[in-house]
């Protein structure tokens, strides 16, 4: 019972992070209809921004995550303005080529610029934990989770309450009608893409205190991100939250019964089952 409670707690904490890194993917799809296969590479870039901020400016990665968000938001904005803009109306194959090509470009640029070694930050709280009775709450995980909650809350507020957010949703629903109402759709797309990749970068930086960063770290997350998003319903922000927490908890709880090696097998079996029974995802259609 105790180990179940611990596993659920750990799963929720890691799931919160999965939710934030996946929100970007779902946001980009929701607003622009593009599946960004290179999403996880922006997470890697965010980790690098935070690592460099820590190494050379002495900024803790948790604060650095805001820096990572800003830097990668700007990069996303620029990429949308130059590259992605051109494939918005193109056939899906062109979009796939662009995003998959971007994986190769980003990973290899990181390899050339930063080298291939693992980089790790040493924070004062890296081995800290809190006790909740018999339960352990790992501080780096908790910090990443809380940051994810804050970030998710801000995103919700932005999309639901702010003028920009409403304009963005309007663009997603009907670009033509939005344009007629005086919304600059191209600008909304830049904003959405910047936000989307910025969120993944933010999540990447938030998990840096307990992980290491290297140019191919993104590939460890890309399949997970897609699972989260498809599980929750592609294009649904609430779905990313539900999917993220579900993936985190499934991964964590499955290890109570099965070997850790089978962690992802259990996840994907459940994933396939969900798709078979509910192809639109857990929260699909409720967007």
């Amino acid at each position: 019972m105790l180990s179940l409670a611990q596993a659920v707690l750990d799963g929720v904490m890691i799931g919160g992070v999965y939710a934030v890194i996946s929100m970007g993917l779902t946001l980009v799809f929701g607003v622009m209809g593009i599946v960004n296969f290179a999403q996880a590479q922006f997470l890697m870039l965010g980790m690098f921004v935070a690592w460099f901020a820590w190494r050379f400016l002495g900024i803790d990665p948790l604060l650095g995550s805001f820096l990572a968000f800003g830097a990668i938001f700007a990069l996303g904005w620029a990429l949308q303005a130059t590259l992605f803009r051109r494939v918005l109306a193109a056939p899906p194959v062109a979009q796939i080529f662009l995003t998959v090509g971007l994986i190769i470009v980003l990973e290899n640029s990181a390899l050339l610029l930063f080298g291939s070694e693992f980089r790790s930050v040493a924070t004062p709280y890296q081995t800290a934990s809190l006790r909740l009775g018999e339960l352990f709450v790992n501080v780096p995980y908790l910090a990443a989770f809380l940051l994810s909650v804050v970030c998710g809350g801000l995103l919700w507020w932005f999309l639901d309450r702010s003028w920009f957010g409403r304009a963005m949703r309007a663009t997603a629903q009907d670009p033509m009608a939005a344009r007629l109402m005086g919304i600059d759709a191209a600008r909304m797309h830049r904003l959405a893409f910047g936000l989307g990749v910025g969120l993944s970068a933010f999540g990447g930086a938030a998990i840096l205190p307990y992980l290491t960063v290297y140019p191919t770290v993104g590939s460890q997350f890309s399949v997970l991100m897609f699972t989260v998003v498809v599980l929750g319903g592609l294009g649904s922000i609430a779905g990313a939250v539900v999917g993220g927490v579900a993936v985190g908890v499934i991964q964590s709880v499955s290890t109570l019964v099965f070997p850790i090696q089978l962690q992802n097998l259990v996840l994907f079996l459940l994933f396939i089952a969900v798709l078979a029974l509910r192809p639109e995802g857990l929260m699909g259609g409720s967007r």
Binding site: Q251, T255, I260, Q263
Partner: peptide
Amino acid sequence: EAYPLGITDVTPLIN
């Protein structure tokens, strides 16, 4: 216990 190369969350292992 065996675990996969490139593991991103070792918490279950340590639990």
